[in-house]
Design a protein around this nucleic acid. Structure first.
Lengths: 111, 111
DNA sequence: ACACTATATCCGAATATACGGATATCCATA
DNA sequence: TATGGATATCCGTATATTCGGATATAGTGT
């Protein structure tokens, strides 16, 4: 993630924005958790996640069956600042997503 | 400008991003100045400016023949923060645009 | 009224983006 | 190695976005 332009393009889709912010506040999430929290199809979520990874916003790590996504350790300071500002601004809608997430059963980290 | 999503969509086009940032650092610019500084066609610039105005990022005011654009007085704090961060990050490419602007002859404010 | 400059908008074409559905891949476990 | 769950990718389609070129509108000065 070198250019703000590319960063804004990534965040200009509702699915990618919500996924990024949710991961930003939760720390690490796997695909099935995001499918549940965002209430979207698995291929759709997966496609957007791989785009965010390709742009350098997310890191992914496989752990058993699951692939966990987190904010890239190489994300520049300015991008983190923008995520900070945005998560604060979207606090309420983010809390809705966090609630769906907490209501999910059989979350991978529990096993 | 209510939602970060909409804000990011506006800034995810290179013409709109550059126009917004240039206006952000210069304070107020007319269409012909932006046409010159961004080296694009007048209809293209005009179209993007009206989009930015419709989204609540820019204000416009006609002064004689010219229409001047500035950052909207109603732009929320969080959006200003993002513009601040972005203009700092894009400092170098912004300076190139500012140089083209300064080199322009017959700028409206001179008359 | 006319000419000229600045700006805005309309239109069709080209391009980009996002999607659903099907399918492939990867891993754990029996 | 067979099965099943989780994830990724492919493909064709639908939609959205952007563009250039033409044209319309608005204001200024003659």
């Amino acid at each position: 993630m070198k250019e703000p332009l590319q960063f804004f393009k990534c965040l200009s889709d509702i699915t990618r924005l919500n996924a990024t912010l949710l991961i930003f506040v939760e720390g690490e999430l796997c695909v099935c958790e995001l499918v549940e929290a965002l209430n979207d199809s698995q291929p759709k979520i997966s496609r957007h996640l791989s785009q965010l990874r390709a742009c350098g916003i997310l890191d992914d790590v496989r752990r058993g069956q699951w692939v966990f996504y987190s904010i890239s350790k190489n994300l520049p300071e300015w991008a983190t600042e923008i995520l900070e500002t945005t998560s604060r601004t979207n606090k309420e809608s983010l809390q809705v997503l966090q609630t769906s997430l907490k209501a999910m059963e059989n979350r991978p980290q529990c096993c």
